[in-house]
Simulated scan of single mutants.
Amino acid sequence: MAPFAAERVVGQLPGGPEVLVILLLLGVVILVPLGIFVVVYRFVAGRNDHEQRLSQLEREVAALQREVRESADDDETEAVDPTASVTNRDTE
Rank of each mutant, 00 (worst) to 15 (best):
T87D: 14
L34V: 12
T83F: 13
T87K: 09
R59G: 09
V61R: 08
G11R: 06
E67S: 10
Q65A: 09
A79E: 07
S85A: 12
L64P: 00
L24S: 14
E7V: 11
V40T: 01
N88I: 03
R59T: 10
P33G: 08
P3F: 05
L13C: 12
D73S: 02
G15R: 10
I22G: 12
T77K: 13
G46D: 06
A63S: 08
T91W: 11
R8W: 13
R47L: 13
L26E: 02
H50V: 12
H50N: 14
T83Q: 12
H50F: 14
S71A: 05
R42I: 06
M1H: 00
G27S: 11
S85L: 11
V68Q: 13
R66K: 15
A63M: 05
Q56A: 13
T83V: 11
L54P: 07
D74Y: 08
E67M: 01
A45I: 04
Q65D: 08
V38C: 02
A72H: 00
E70G: 00
A45H: 04
L34H: 07
R69Y: 03
A84Y: 00
P82T: 03
S55A: 15
A5N: 03
V68K: 15
Y41Q: 10
T87S: 14
I36C: 08
A5D: 09
V29T: 03
L31D: 12
E92I: 01
F4R: 01
N88F: 04
L13K: 12
R89A: 03
E70R: 04
G11T: 09
R53C: 02
E58R: 01
V9K: 07
G15P: 09
V32H: 01
L57P: 04
E67G: 07
E76I: 12
E60C: 05
T77H: 09
I22A: 15
E92L: 04
A63C: 03
I36P: 00
V39W: 04
P82S: 01
Q56Y: 10
R47S: 13
V9G: 01
E18T: 07
I30H: 05
D81W: 02
R69C: 04
V61M: 05
E67D: 14
L31K: 12
R59M: 12
A5V: 06
E70A: 07
S85V: 07
G46M: 06
R59H: 13
M1A: 02
G15C: 10
D81M: 00
T83Y: 13
A6R: 12
A72R: 08
T91Q: 11
P82Q: 02
E51T: 08
A45Y: 05
E18D: 09
D90I: 15
V19L: 14
G16Q: 10
P33C: 08
A5F: 01
V40R: 00
E70S: 01
S55V: 11
V10W: 00
V19H: 05
F37Y: 15
E78P: 03
L24K: 11
V28F: 06
P3W: 08
T87A: 13
V19C: 10
Y41M: 06
E60L: 10
F37K: 15
